[in-house]
Design a protein around this nucleic acid. Structure first.
Length: 600
RNA sequence: GGUCGCGUAGCUCAGCUGGAUAGAGCAUCUGCCUUCUAAGCAGACGGUCGAAGGUUCGAAUCCUUCCGCGAUCACCA
């Protein structure tokens, strides 16, 4: 029997059919499904058929049943060359020729692993969405890396993707920075101070908090109780007044707001560029904060919402095990939820092809998004079924939570710089970069430093909180970005030396080394790994896959000689295999937003 | 208090849509650079999978209860 399509699923399908055939012919019963799993390393074989579930329809001893099916398969399926049975596990050895067929088929496929472009629904992925009153910090880094990577993974899985962020450019927090700058800034600008725009504005946010706290303390000393003092501090009143003026369109306030926001955007752009993330569409809260009120009115008529005596509008979600939630204040103004309802609808209007949105937002907003999605469903939007909150745990420091206004944050720019510096110092110690210009070196240090940081953050389950200790630097050895990058660079070195080896189809009759077969099996599951990562919104699955691949490669590299192999066919296979592994590393790392170096 | 999430080796984490003897890395200890890059490889050490019940031929994985940690339950965003 010849396989038309060298796909793992295809092999599973054929095997399933043949196992069913075997059971039918031996026991004369119909087997509904067959369970497969990769054979564990300690046993001989490639694919394992689990016999236990068959006991429901086939009476007998699992070992005996396994043996009988095994014999049938060896006889009737050319891909199955041998088998053994351990307990209720039927281990099948798949013929080398099958894997060589598979390899010949994917060897030249430059987009191996990725699904056909735009074969699935368009989705919008929102991430970052910072406030414009302070620079980005480590928490934003996790957010950005996750959002960007999930967007890339969805693309690879065949979705059209729009990356977006909603910039929280208005509100009391911005007014605080503005007011402090007005009071204490003495006209300071990014140019005059040499500070990055976002850092400059953040400095005044901290300054506001300091002045505010000092005033509160004074008031308390004068005999006020703390809660009252916190409400009555004049600097806070002033900030609130500024917000009112902004909302009224006061020219002077709006001008100041525009000026300071422009500084921040310039700073953000630099940070995003460094981080390697980008967006297709920007939304600004100053444009969207009034959205949603009409929808609420419609929903009120439809009976989705109800009005309380004071005029405020609510939704009752007690049937869903949640509470009542306000969607419009008694004075008719919007709350956060109103805006998010409006913004979601706006996005579908702007991009009519999208069917699904991913919100990359911290897990402290789990409840908010649960409610938001429920409301949109109740309002009857079909796309509401395809909303996903990509929720992630906080990044905490040993000293506790990061707080921008108290200055206890790990700044994004600083962290990236220090990662690059660490990479530089390690690289210089190793001294393998002879012939590289300073510029090339700097570029490489950045690639490695950021690779370490990105991999470190993306390899863990988003739901878990991360304790980040700035004292202990991120590792560069073991299960890390640089380890994987190193393997890539090593392969490039071999390929440079192997430029005289021509790569063409490999002879099917070749006998595979155990390590070669293991590598081919790992390559084979790349496409399904991409799909799985997309379905689970999980960059960690990609990271773990790549790590396994690289570990296998290094073991292979250690055990067999590639360029020293005398047999030309074998040498060609090994070079081609190395090349393919490198391509998959590059491809999977691209999904994580991590670059790979030619040397290191 | 209600709801949600997390709890696996000294540390950081995989495995969680049920399958074989629970896997990696770091740290500690042994070997391996005159041979394709040692940011590597091979190995040792290290586990009552938070606890107790239950379902099952089989449970780290599913269910229940409890314990610990975190988040959330605003006419804030």
């Amino acid at each position: 029997m010849l396989l038309e399509n060298d796909d793992l699923m295809e092999l599973h399908k054929v095997l399933e059919q043949k196992v069913q055939e075997a059971v039918k012919s031996i026991f004369n019963v119909d087997l509904p499904t067959v369970e497969f799993q990769p054979t564990r390393k300690d046993f001989e074989g490639d694919i394992t058929v689990v016999v236990f579930p068959m006991l429901r329809v086939v009476k007998g001893n699992p070992v005996q049943i396994g043996n009988q099916i095994g014999e049938y398969l060896v006889e009737h399926v050319s891909e199955v060359s041998k088998f053994n049975v351990v307990k209720g596990f039927l281990n099948l050895v798949i013929a080398d020729s099958y894997y060589l067929d598979f390899f010949n088929a994917i060897m030249a496929d430059a987009t191996y692993g990725y699904a056909k472009v735009n074969s699935k629904d368009a989705v919008m992925v929102e991430y970052s969405s910072p406030n414009t009153n302070k620079p980005l910090h480590l928490g934003h880094i996790r957010n950005n890396l996750l959002g960007y990577s999930v967007a890339e993974i969805l693309k690879a899985a065949g979705h059209k993707v729009y990356k977006t962020q909603i910039i929280n450019d208005r509100g009391i927090h911005i007014c605080k920075s503005m007011l402090a700058w007005q009071k204490f800034g003495e006209g300071e600008t990014p140019e005059s101070s040499g500070l990055k725009g976002d850092h400059l504005v953040g400095k005044y946010y901290v300054a506001f908090d300091k002045a505010y706290k000092a005033e509160v303390q004074e008031l308390v000393a004068d005999g006020k109780d703390k809660a009252t003092a916190e409400k009555e501090a004049s600097i806070l009143i002033e900030a609130q007044e500024m917000l009112r003026k902004w909302e009224a369109g006061d020219n002077k306030v709006v001008m100041l707001w525009k000026k300071m926001n422009a500084w921040v955007y310039e700073g953000f752009d630099t940070t995003y560029k460094n981080m390697g993330v980008d967006f297709d569409k920007l939304y600004y809260e100053s444009n969207t904060y009034l959205l949603g009120r009409d929808v609420v009115k419609d929903g009120l008529e439809k009976g989705v919402f109800f009005k309380k005596e004071d005029g405020s509008v609510w939704i009752d979600l007690t049937d869903e095990g949640l509470d009542e939630k306000i969607v419009l204040r008694s004075d008719g103004t919007a709350v956060y939820m109103t805006q998010d309802i409006g913004t979601a609808i706006q996005r579908v209007t702007d991009f009519p092809d999208i069917n699904g949105m991913v919100y990359t937002v911290g897990n402290e907003q789990d409840y908010h998004f649960k409610v938001l999605f429920l409301i949109l469903k109740k309002l009857g939007y079909s796309w509401a079924e395809k909303l996903y909150h990509l929720s992630y745990g906080m990044v905490d420091l040993p000293s506790g939570k990061m707080k921008s206004r108290e200055g206890t944050v790990v700044d994004a720019d600083d962290l990236m710089d220090s990662m690059t510096a660490t990479a530089a110092s390690i690289s210089e110690d190793l001294g393998k970069l002879e012939g590289y210009s300073n510029e090339e070196k700097q570029q490489l240090y950045k690639t490695i430093g950021l690779g370490a940081l990105k991999y470190y953050i993306l390899k863990v389950d988003p739901k878990k909180r991360i304790l980040f200790n700035p004292e202990e630097s991120v590792d560069f050895q073991g299960n890390t970005g640089p380890f994987i990058q190193y393997t890539y660079a090593r392969i490039q070195s071999i390929l440079r030396k192997a430029s005289n080896v021509t790569l063409s189809g490999i002879e099917k009759s070749l006998e595979l080394h155990e390590k070669e077969k293991t590598l081919l099996k790992q390559l084979q599951i790349y496409p399904e790994t991409v799909q799985l990562a997309a379905e689970n919104y999980s960059p960690a699955l990609i990271a773990n896959y790549t790590y396994d691949l690289v570990k296998e490669f290094n073991s292979f590299y250690q055990q067999v000689s590639i360029l020293g192999e005398a047999d030309e066919q074998k040498k060609m296979l090994r070079v081609a295999l190395s090349k393919k592994v490198a391509r998959v590393i590059e491809s999977s790392f691209r999904l994580l937003g991590v670059a790979v170096p030619e040397r290191m």
